[in-house]
Every structure is written in structure tokens, then in C-alpha cells.
Simulated scan of single mutants.
Amino acid sequence: MPPGIQEAAAWAALRQTAVAPQGPWARLDVVDRTGSTNADLAAAAADGAPDRTVLVAHHQDAGRGRRERTWESAPSEGLTFSVLLRPAEVPLQQWGWAPLIAGLALVVAMEDYRPAAGDAAVTAALKWPNDLLLGPAQRKGAGILSEVVDGGDGGHALVVGIGINVATPEAELPEGGTSLLAQSVRRSRPDVLGDVLATLASLDADWRAARGDAARAGLLAGYRRRCATLGSTVRVALPGDRQLDGVAEDIDDDGRLVVRGTDGALTTVSAGDVVHVRTVES
């Protein structure tokens, strides 16, 4: 069977298992090309698209990252998708947890992945707030952008965009980046998406059941266990050319990073206030 037909069959099989009535997702659409899956789902949200809609693009040429950084995904190498969430049970002020939950879903879904030849699972961790780190060198394997958008009828919705380096060859990766393939993990994009969506739906359900209380839902503890930033000496770049140096001590109940500065004082920073966080040699 030609690879194109084989992959089409895999996407169709995923839709059968992930979408209601068998799965927890309302809709899963796969398109060949788009500018931005986040932009497309934001427009769909305003038009009334249902909670837990998923949009996948084989090629995205106007993707956006944090702080309006742009990027392009190569066809068939990366997994680029967005999910639309309408967590009515969660107070709006707690929606900042959405990208952290998505990051946690990536790690939980992949922490049992194993290289093609080897028994040890690939090392997977989180860099606060939501970058996926893979391998012993902890290189970036995925990124997330979460946005609160017009949900139609005067309400709001969440769109969470995720880009995962699945089959990008090591020679084509940017500095500091990695992919599942570069970690010797051979897994198809439909399989990876299925794993992530199943995990994300479960964590999202826990979050909603706890009315957005990440600690009560067990999400905060799960995030802390998998966050490689904690315990590290960090340099936090803030707007206005300000800088905070210190040790990352904790993640608080609101998902913010708590840093003990060189003067001993504790400073709490939110993802929206940070330009960049780097781990530095102590």
C-alpha cells in the first residue's frame, strides 16, 4: 500500500477512535495546508464550533509562537494542530493553566516512548511554562501557544496550538531543537496525535471537574514532578530589558514560576510577563 494511502487510512482510523461517540473529541479535521491552525480555529470558535474541536495541518506556513514569533512547519515531518476548548466549568482567571496542561499532556503521552533499539524510555520533561524537552541534552521537541479568543455569543473560548517535531531529521533541526526521530523514536504522526489527544482530554476533564483548581485536580503535582526548570539556576528576561537571576524554586497554584533571586527575595512571574527563561550554569 503506498505511504500516502497508508497515512490517510491512519488518520481515518484515528478519527474513529478519538471522536464521539467512541472518543472524547467532538470533531477532528485534517487539512493539507493552512496559514495558522490557531487562526483558523479562532475564526471557527467565533462561528460557534463545538468544544473539543481539533484541526490538524500537514503544512502550516504562518504559524505563530509566543510573543508573535513566526515559524513554518515542513510537510509530513512535524505534527501541527490546534484544539478548541470551552471550559465553562473553569473561571476565566484560571484559563492560564491551559498551556501548562497541554505541555503536561505532551510529556505524559511521550514519557513511555522507547527508541527503536533500546529498552530505556526517551527522557521527556518540561521547561516552564510549556516547552517539551526530549533526550539527555534536554533539547526542545515541541512548543505551545494558547490564546483566549472570541467564543461567539459574547463568550470566550480557548485555542491551544501545538507543534511537535516528529520526523524532522537531525541535520535539519534548528540549534537547540530535537525531534522524536532524532531521539531514535519512530512513531507516525497519527499515532503521536492519538496519544496526545487521549492524554489531554483526560487532564482537561480533571481540570474541569476541579473547577480549575489545578492542585485539587492533581495537575500541579504532576507538572512539578516533570518540570526540569525547577531547581535550576535561571535567567528570566522581562519586558523593558529587565532581568531576573536566581533559582527556580516552585510553580504556584496559578502556574507561575517562583524564583529566589540572588538577594534571597522571592519573585513570582507569569508566562505572559516573561520574554524568555534560560537555564544558566551555576
Score class of each variant (00 low, 15 high):
21 P>H: 10
42 A>Q: 01
145 L>E: 09
41 L>M: 10
139 R>D: 01
261 G>A: 11
34 T>V: 12
83 V>A: 12
194 G>N: 02
169 P>F: 06
198 A>P: 02
97 W>F: 03
229 T>I: 05
129 P>N: 04
220 L>T: 00
32 D>G: 13
22 Q>L: 15
142 A>G: 13
100 L>T: 06
76 S>F: 14
90 V>R: 02
220 L>R: 11
120 A>L: 15
178 T>D: 03
217 A>Y: 02
280 V>M: 10
125 A>L: 04
166 V>A: 14
184 S>N: 11
117 A>W: 14
90 V>K: 04
239 P>F: 10
105 A>E: 02
250 D>Q: 09
96 G>I: 00
136 P>Y: 03
1 M>A: 09
130 N>V: 00
34 T>A: 11
79 L>S: 02
279 T>H: 13
85 L>D: 07
241 D>I: 00
79 L>G: 06
269 V>K: 05
102 A>L: 05
26 A>Y: 05
8 A>S: 11
142 A>K: 08
159 V>K: 06
70 T>H: 15
269 V>R: 12
183 Q>I: 11
89 E>Q: 15
24 P>G: 14
145 L>M: 08
237 A>G: 09
148 V>I: 14
113 Y>A: 14
224 R>G: 08
32 D>N: 10
126 L>N: 09
26 A>P: 07
234 V>P: 01
247 V>T: 15
166 V>H: 02
118 G>Q: 09
71 W>Q: 07
160 V>Q: 01
25 W>F: 10
128 W>L: 06
176 G>P: 02
70 T>N: 15
75 P>Q: 13
246 G>C: 09
4 G>Q: 15
80 T>L: 02
38 N>L: 04
73 S>R: 07
183 Q>E: 15
127 K>W: 02
123 T>W: 01
174 P>N: 08
81 F>A: 07
27 R>H: 13
145 L>R: 04
121 A>Q: 12
115 P>T: 02
258 V>F: 06
